[in-house]
Design a protein around this nucleic acid. Structure first.
Lengths: 197, 197
DNA sequence: ATAGTTTCTTAACATAGATCAATGCACAAC
DNA sequence: GTTGTGCATTGATCTATGTTAAGAAACTAT
């Protein structure tokens, strides 16, 4: 099975040629997952990272009141894991589910160690990933604290126009922290405003 | 000027003795800041980390509508910086202000590099800090998405009982994402409930 | 095509929390 | 002491968003 994208991704971000990386990547496994199936479920220990070659994943939690909260959408060429669970070896609070039929690379828990030992600039690259993650989480907090539902929706459209078309609105709503009905209202409102101008 | 706490903190977390660390720590500078003065302001580039020896700092942003959002409170023995600004060399969106007269250690931007070169297990320690930060941000998102004002307040009390007593309620409110009036009502409500039982 | 899900929209009503405005406390300055 | 200045509380009202319920539309599977 081909690992085109993942190999290319890693090699280019580490400034190495693919040959040099391929032995390490070879230690990762591949998986085809059907829409609706799970790569991780709450209370399990997460011991992989997941790189999406094709398809789309969704990471979400279910709170005490039984409501779903979408943490992230993960399309091709993106990576997802529960860093909290992996790093601290705690049970995960999250589900990672295939939103479309997908092909993913399973990256083993000790991949980071392996890479750090073999590839000098891996640590720096991984550091960049962590900092990106922090930036993105912080921005989301800022939006939740300071922006209305409509503003958050507009921000989402701008950031992830492609995702918008690939998932049901009910899931976008659960990402934004509003109900599907709420989102429907926001959309109607925007449509009216644009029409009137 | 003494750097007691910071030196102890670093040495113990890196499993080194203080003598070994002290030359590096010596390259950091110290600052006494008066209540109300700023260590960082929005639009500046953040090029330090700040370790609080004594006192209390607050990190906050001001949104387009002019509202303050408290990002974090930073008491003795804690560390704060704007990782986004430092790492990506972008102007900061945040203010870091002394909430009480404080004594802080200024940790230079290239401290990480310096430490990584000299102390083998520094990278691992720093990694842990980053992961802790991510966990904490993610938890806050979960709360903002799924918990009511009252629940968030109760969670705050449990996590930071000491902070609660040291800052005006209006700032706690801005941390929780509600108005001071809103917080006042939550507190009244809780007081009544506890009284009735 | 038909029936069965799932998603989306709409409307009426309910509610948490915001806003506005007034009052009462503290505690600091003089 | 008196006079400020910031902080907390309270009440009245307002608004964004949630809830419930129903029907329309889209998509799936037989």
């Amino acid at each position: 099975m081909s690992s085109g994208k993942f190999l290319t991704y890693i090699a280019s971000h580490l400034n190495r040629d693919e040959a040099e990386i391929s032995s390490i990547v070879a230690s990762c496994s591949f998986k085809n997952v059907k829409k609706g199936s799970y790569l991780l479920q709450a209370n399990e220990h997460c011991n992989h990272g997941f790189f999406v070659e094709t398809g789309l994943l969704r990471q979400y939690s279910i709170d005490k009141k039984g409501k779903e909260h979408t943490i992230s959408f993960v399309p091709e060429d993106w990576f997802v894991t529960d860093r909290d669970s992996v790093f601290f070896n705690r049970p995960s609070k999250y589900f990672i589910q295939a939103q479309e039929d997908s092909q993913v690379v399973l990256i083993d828990q000790n991949y980071e160690k392996l890479m750090s030992e073999k590839i000098p600039n891996f640590a720096e690259f991984n550091n960049r990933l962590l900092h990106n993650h922090i930036s993105q989480l912080q921005e989301r907090i800022d939006l939740l604290l300071g922006a209305t539902a409509k503003e958050r929706y507009l921000h989402f459209i701008k950031m992830y126009p492609d995702i918008l078309l690939r998932v049901p609105q009910t899931m976008v709503a659960s990402y934004l922290g509003i109900t599907p009905e709420g989102l429907s209202r926001v959309r109607k409102d925007l449509a009216l405003k644009n029409f009137k101008k």
